[in-house]
Design a protein around this nucleic acid. Structure first.
Lengths: 209, 209
DNA sequence: ACCTGAACACCGTTCAAGT
DNA sequence: ACCTGAACACCGTTCAAGT
């Protein structure tokens, strides 16, 4: 038996903190955010139920760390959508909205985590605040650029337009997440289509003609 | 001691089922939906933890009964708003939206319960399905009436317009509930104002001019 | 017919004790 | 410094037993 290498690591993990976050992200993605329990995460990693408390003061603290990560992924997705969108300011706004609801659709567990802010310590986590603020700025900047280009009516307040766009996107994403669509006549399997069509309707109304 | 009167009732309640629903509604309203636990409800009523299971097969079954009641109250509120709104079709649509977000704002716990459909057995509860469907019809009918009166552009699909209006209202209500507004530049105490202003912006865009 | 008491398998969290 | 084991106060749920 060697004196060095893998056996050198302590009980189980070199970086349990990191492993806990990853396992939580994985659990949320595969089985939903409500299945992310400290004991289950610990079980996945083969450590005791008390082990996570060496790295996170509470369940909320772990969820907050997971939220930071999830929000970064959402931001990445939206920036990518923007990068692919080309130059037309209105198309950029559409890309941003589609990027948002698309990510929420494909990553329901992570979407739920960044949504449910009573499970997150936003105030005590500057990184999370900054990340969320950055997404808001991205939306507002895109709205302002569209106004400057004459593609949105200039008399509407940019902040309010951005809030409306976000409310519609968040509303659609949550309606899907909370299973409201069946009640609203959206055929199963056509949710993405309905969300996109509804967002397009909004954007066409926002555009001056 | 009399042979009749109050002492005649069994252990505690004449109608424990009804009392459980009322206590749950009360708890949700005062301390939030997540505090509605079967054990806590039982405690409030002075019965054992097992007693609720005589009347509801599971927590979900109780929440569903509570959801039926909450949805009825929401419907009542929206119908009242409509009744007060007068004849202008656009004003009626505005009243409907305001009624929705206003109720959500004032009854956060009940709003949360009708929102979180994974905690409700919608499929197995015709009364709930019917109640929710009625609210959708109310919105669509109001949209159609506004179109017929020439106050909304007739070329837009009524179903899609109704979905957009609902997505915006639900999005705003949930953004508030999930504490997103601070991140979106809405000053504390001015949430209702921001929600109304945003809905008015949407309605002004929906209107033909 | 309706309710209780005790039990079981889960949680989050704490703390003394181990390496 | 980091982790375990046992404990505590909570859950939802079940079931035999009481009235």
């Amino acid at each position: 038996m060697a004196l060095s290498a893998p056996e050198t690591r302590p009980y189980h993990h070199g970086d349990l903190r990191r492993a806990l976050i990853d396992a939580a992200l994985d659990l949320a993605e595969r089985h939903g955010a409500e299945r992310v329990t400290l004991r289950e995460v610990a079980r996945q990693l083969g450590v005791s139920a008390a082990a996570p408390f060496r790295h996170f003061a509470s369940r909320k603290a772990l969820m907050t760390a997971v939220g930071v990560e999830a929000n970064e992924r959402l931001a990445l997705e939206m920036r990518r959508a923007l990068a692919r969108a080309g130059a037309s300011p209105l198309a950029r706004l559409r890309a941003l909205s589609r990027g948002y609801v698309g990510w929420a659709l494909r990553h329901a567990g992570h979407f739920r985590i960044v949504s449910a802010r009573d499970e997150l310590d936003v105030d005590g986590t500057p990184a999370l605040q900054a990340g969320m603020h950055a997404l808001r700025d991205l939306t507002e900047d895109t709205v302002r650029a569209a106004q400057a280009a004459g593609e949105l009516r200039p008399d509407d307040d940019a902040e309010r337009l951005a809030l409306l766009a976000r409310a519609a996107a968040y509303g659609l994403a949550r309606m899907h997440h909370d299973d409201h669509f069946r009640q609203w006549g959206v055929a199963p399997g056509r949710e993405a289509e309905a969300m996109e069509g509804t967002l397009n309707l909004l954007l066409s109304m926002m555009a001056r003609r």
